[in-house]
Design a protein around this nucleic acid. Sequence first.
DNA 1: CTTGCATCTGACAACGTTGTCCAGGCCCTA
DNA 2: TAGGGCCTGGACAACGTTGTCAGATGCAAG
Lengths: 411, 411
Amino acid sequence: MLDATRSWTTTLDHHVGHRSDHPTDHHVGHRTDHRRDGLADDPMDGPVAQDDPDDPVDDRTGQRTVAETAARRPASRYGNRPTMKDVAARAGVGLKTVSRVVNGEPGVTPDTERRVQEAIEALGFRRNDSARVLRKGRTASIGLVLEDLADPFYGPLSRAVEEVARAHGALLINGSSAEDPDREQELVLALCARRVDGLVIIPAADDHRYLEPEIAAGVATVFVDRPAGKIDADAVLSDSFGGARDGVAHLIAHGHRRIGFIGDQPRIHTAIERLRGYRAAMEDAEIPVDEAWVSLGLTDPERVRAAAEEMLAGPDPVTAIFAGNNRVTVTVVRVLAALDRPVALVGFDDIELADLLDPGVTVVAQDAAQLGRTAAERLFRQLDGASGAPERVELPTRLIQRGSGELPPAG
Amino acid sequence: MLDATRSWTTTLDHHVGHRSDHPTDHHVGHRTDHRRDGLADDPMDGPVAQDDPDDPVDDRTGQRTVAETAARRPASRYGNRPTMKDVAARAGVGLKTVSRVVNGEPGVTPDTERRVQEAIEALGFRRNDSARVLRKGRTASIGLVLEDLADPFYGPLSRAVEEVARAHGALLINGSSAEDPDREQELVLALCARRVDGLVIIPAADDHRYLEPEIAAGVATVFVDRPAGKIDADAVLSDSFGGARDGVAHLIAHGHRRIGFIGDQPRIHTAIERLRGYRAAMEDAEIPVDEAWVSLGLTDPERVRAAAEEMLAGPDPVTAIFAGNNRVTVTVVRVLAALDRPVALVGFDDIELADLLDPGVTVVAQDAAQLGRTAAERLFRQLDGASGAPERVELPTRLIQRGSGELPPAG
DNA sequence: CTTGCATCTGACAACGTTGTCCAGGCCCTA
DNA sequence: TAGGGCCTGGACAACGTTGTCAGATGCAAG
């Protein structure tokens, strides 16, 4: 009757322990008010910094109120899920045996395994991965920081990263920087505190030295779409320079000489590169660039509209426009649609329904999904121990002719 | 020197002299065979564990000498980040004092605080939130399970959820179910294992009883876009029925009687609701529905194109089409563009550039961002302790006339 | 020069999991 | 029948953090 002895001791142990206040096993989901002490808004003072000045508990006095005493056994208040210990007690086996069953490790009799499984089922046990992480050191999750998930360019990119992560058994945590360097840093560091195994970053900032300690500590890091600033790190980029040069050359080939360029803020690497491509194409064709044709800045519709209208007005208007990204392209399409004369347009980034417009929008397409996939794969290669100097990978772009880029100059 | 006071009963019970042996143990991560049950992935061991073979420090003795502490200092050792213990040692203070400084708790002399801050800086310490979570019980992260992040409808929704989460100091983990019920469940349970505080789910499955133990254990849950199946849970929906009815009524008002409906798979709640709206509008106008006009199924371009072409062919073709969601709309637009006669179209969901097509696409718009925001707010209200019976919130839709819905019947 | 009282500080035990290692039981061989 | 090797099961100590509580320290009042 060793079995009896065993379950006896464990049961005893169990009752002496902290959970003695549960006479019945099945506490059904009646949801009590789980208002814990200060936290209401912010349990882990994560991204939002704060000092709770209204902390209701003041234990300097040393006196113990009823409320305090109740709060003292947090384990029985909120979300106290059954643990392996509970499962073990119910199944009448040891803790480690439960662990073995849960993880499918060998060395458990079918009979024992069945008993454990039953207990798991009955209690609704689910392994706490936080604890597992703490023990194992890897979280099996990666972070993705991008500009704005709502942007049609980043959706597919994020999805591609997710698929690769999934193939490696990892989850994806993502955050939007809203193109704000401070917010980017805040997000990245919050992710590091969660101990993500790796980071895929579409940077908004241009100084990433804040990442150095993290990288030194082993956080794999890959930058996408734009390179890192002031540190050396892997980067997966589209060939912005080449793509823009080709796009502009395409316009030139169709007879244009006065070509406008509307791009993103000069702080952003791709904006610079694309402008550089524009200038290169113009120079190749020996066309001097009138600086009135060039406009960098925010990509909100108002600014872009103003910029476009300005270069389309006057005695010597541009006859073609190169749009620096998808948001710019959309706005320029609208402006041109309201115009009484045809103006050629080539946009960077493909946009949905571009083929159904009249004329169809000619674009320099980059493959967002491929960008994400490549970056994620590099990340996991880093995690698999591949070391070596950081590299910069550049993916080619593709010119898709749909009509708007093939219009001849007006007149 | 070694803490004999510990639960000596248990120590006595078992190995008596067990603590003094194995002065060193360089254990390499020897991996035994994994006979795991299905589960496809191996959550934690996915990214390979790198075992630093050159680990110079072994402090199994439990006592920390000055020399050891010094030897530990090179924080550059891979995957072995400094802990509060290290910081404490370097600053010459106690562990708890470091914790206090890190968390901005009161009761630390400015001088002490400075010393600790310096040590933190020097070592590149960053608090390990995994451990914190384990201790505190809340992860300050929420999960979002949706169909496909690359879908332009879900991007803004996800972003909206993220913003609300951020306002509450939480991070967002999201996963794509790819419209696969099994994958949805797998994802949801993985998120529960990470102990997310709450879940926002756009369900693919129609049976969510698997969530019952989780909800009972206190995981806040809100369904969006589609209600939960077979359990009672909060849901935030668009008024699919009303929206579709209005859209179809709009077509009827413009003289159409033979109106086609192309929707998503009948498994999906919104597809059913929208079809119901279609039928209601037809019935209100006393128009009998020819079942050849109705097509439910996958929303990939091929299927939709075939369905559209079929109802547009024959002697008595439809003169108008109601498209059940954004993907369907896009495909139908393409089909109609290739047609030689005008056919009216109203689509559910707004699509970008819809206004620039010719004719503009009339749509029944739902506000994806508002949907996400509302859901996330409900979630955090749950987390803040608001209890009460689950509710279903329905957001109104908005008919946007752009031309395609106002075309009269051909002939 | 005590006493009292605040203030600061640090030892210690959780939190839930997994790696290590030993103790039995079993089967097999000699 | 004894002795050796598997196989199964369980006790224990981490992992890095925070809550508790008691010990130090300083300073004012008696």
